[in-house]
Design a protein around this nucleic acid. Sequence first.
DNA 1: CGCACCGGGTTCTGCCATCTGC
DNA 2: GCAGATGGCAGAACCCGGTGCG
Length: 441
Amino acid sequence: MALIEKVNVVALLNVSVLLSGVCVSSEVKLRLLQQTEGSSTDTGSDVKEQLSSLKMAALPGVRVLLNLHQSMRLQHSLRLINVHLRSMCLPGKVCTGPTKTNEFKPPLNKANESLLENLNLMGVDVKKARERQPGVFRKAFTNEQGLAQFLQSKGASRTVIAGIVSRYPRAITRSIEHLEQRWDLWRNIFMTDAEIVTILDRSPESFFRSSDNGNLEKNIHFLITLGLNTKDLHRLLTTAPRTFSNSLELNMQMVEFLEDVCAELGGTNPGEFVKAVISRNLYIFIRSIKRVKTNIDNLKASLKLNDAELLALIQGSGAEILDLSNEYLKNNFSNLQQKMVSLGCRKADIKNLIITYPMVLYIGSSTLSSKVDCLLKGGITINQIIEKPKVLEYSIQNITGRLEELKKVEYDFQKKGINILDSSRKRFLAKIVKLSGSPEI
DNA sequence: CGCACCGGGTTCTGCCATCTGC
DNA sequence: GCAGATGGCAGAACCCGGTGCG
């Protein structure tokens, strides 16, 4: 009741707000009100926060929020249809199953014949799918044809669809209504169906693993309230789509954890800290808190960092290595240390190297070792590498090729430094052309 | 103009383990 | 006890170009 009143108040507000061209804020308010339905925490402060954050949001954000509202309305109407459809199965031959009732249960471990037939017709790798999720094959009702039609209507090819079902068979247990809702939610973030199809083809599980569309919606909302804009969300959903299938609680826990880290290290703006970490490491949400925490602790201990140094590292480029597996990071650190010490470096040099260029720990130890050797062999000193660690970012092949080219023109690294190695292919080639043409180098 | 500095773009699933609810 | 939902893990770089300064 109170909710309805609130919505009405907001609706009234909407008129003026809409007219003033800031229609998004009203959409958010609506969303917030509906979102908090069932929870008693909504005091209106969220709405204010949302409003202020929206004022800062650029136009793309507007689209997201408008679409969210639209899709919510759609979902509402779909929910009504849903009930109806369920009672009469699905139109046409979109689902498999002998009858509309639940009474019939196929014998255990015996798959539904028409399901197998359908999957074979679709080109699904049935053996693989069955190994993956045997339970799906014992179900009385499946929706493989509905799924296929749905995905086809979104532009997915037969091969893509078969690949999706082969890798994530549970997809065929989702109803059309569910698929429509989920797709609409994703479309709030993606501009085209084709983008979504690409992700589904890449990672079917990310889209299909959860049947909880409400949770997905709440996640999107939560991420927006963190201050992430459309571009951030787009990157996040493209890069780490699993984030959106995490439970809202799990994502919130990660955010709380990061905020705590910030506070413990004496940071003054946890919100910005969290945003910085997320935007630098889009995989953070699909890692466990345990993993991230262990990495932070290890970095602190092994580099003997004080709070301020650690804080700067984590919210700077160090964020990029937080999601690495604990053992991998630890091994890379000890191998790096060993390598550097063997080349006569001091501990302080190593610490400095890692602080200025944490990605050095991202590089596998054998790759790193080869790269360093390759550079040394090419006449570059370890001190030059420490000063310009970015050269380590380039592939061994690239480095080798460039060193050869530079040798031809008798490039003097001692005199000219090694910055030339850290440049785009285009720039490098232009430089080489110039150096070759010049009589004196 | 040439250079160095710096930040940004791309990218990451497929499987197993564990819980939860029916 | 089963299937579904969800958490967690291993695996592991490379490249480009804008910009400001001398």
